[in-house]
Amino acid sequence: MKSLTLLIFCCMMTASLSAGIPDSSDPKSESPSDDGVFVKQEEASTLVRQKRAGVAAADLSLTQLESLREVCEANLACEHMMDTSGIIAAYTVYYGPIPY
């Protein structure tokens, strides 16, 4: 009797969970997106970050990058820019050229 009750409960749970999910075989359930996934090349080139001239992160050792990061963490604005633009860009803006 307990197993029958458990089976009925599981069937009801399955039915209630699947009721909210649209059927993937129904073509009307898919809503077409006007924006799409692809963008024009001009838009993409402005969105993609260009390679910066100057010191590249590959030129610095992990110890040097960590010391720059520690200096930049003392300044809240530099730390925010470090999170968004990278450590080299943030350090250069707030503290000038990299000393090594």
Rank of each mutant, 00 (worst) to 15 (best):
E70K: 14
S25V: 07
P22C: 00
A53V: 11
R49D: 04
S18G: 04
F38A: 11
P22D: 03
L6Y: 06
C11V: 13
E43G: 03
T84Y: 06
S85Y: 11
C10S: 15
C11H: 06
S3C: 01
P32Y: 09
L6A: 12
A89S: 13
D23K: 02
V93Q: 15
S29P: 02
V55Y: 01
H80E: 15
A53N: 13
P27W: 02
E43S: 08
L62R: 13
G86S: 03
V93R: 15
R49I: 01
A56W: 07
T5G: 02
E30I: 12
M81Q: 14
M12R: 09
I8Y: 05
C11Y: 07
E42K: 06
S18L: 10
S85V: 09
P32T: 12
P99H: 00
Y95K: 09
Q41G: 00
C11A: 13
Y95C: 06
F38S: 13
E43Q: 09
S3W: 09
N75E: 04
Y95H: 08
L68Q: 02
P22I: 02
E42H: 04
Q64V: 00
I87E: 07
V37Y: 14
I8E: 07
R69K: 14
S85I: 04
F9L: 15
E70A: 12
G36I: 07
D26L: 01
P99I: 01
K28L: 10
P97N: 11
E66K: 09
K51V: 07
I88E: 04
N75G: 00
S18Y: 10
S29H: 10
A19L: 05
S45R: 07
V37T: 14
A77M: 05
M12V: 12
G96C: 04
S85D: 15
G20A: 08
G54S: 03
A74Q: 14
S31Q: 14
L6F: 06
F38W: 14
S24G: 11
S3M: 04
A77P: 00
D35L: 14
I98P: 00
Y100L: 05
A44S: 07
R52A: 10
D83G: 10
L62H: 08
M82I: 04
D23Y: 02
C10R: 08
Y100R: 04
L65N: 08
H80K: 15
M82V: 04
L47H: 12
T5N: 03
M13T: 15
D34Q: 13
K51E: 12
A77N: 11
S18F: 06
L68S: 02
K2E: 08
P99L: 00
S31K: 13
T92Q: 08
D35V: 14
K28C: 04
R69E: 12
Q41T: 08
M81L: 13
L6G: 01
S18I: 08
V93I: 14
E30K: 13
E79C: 04
S3L: 06
D35W: 11
E42A: 06
A15E: 06
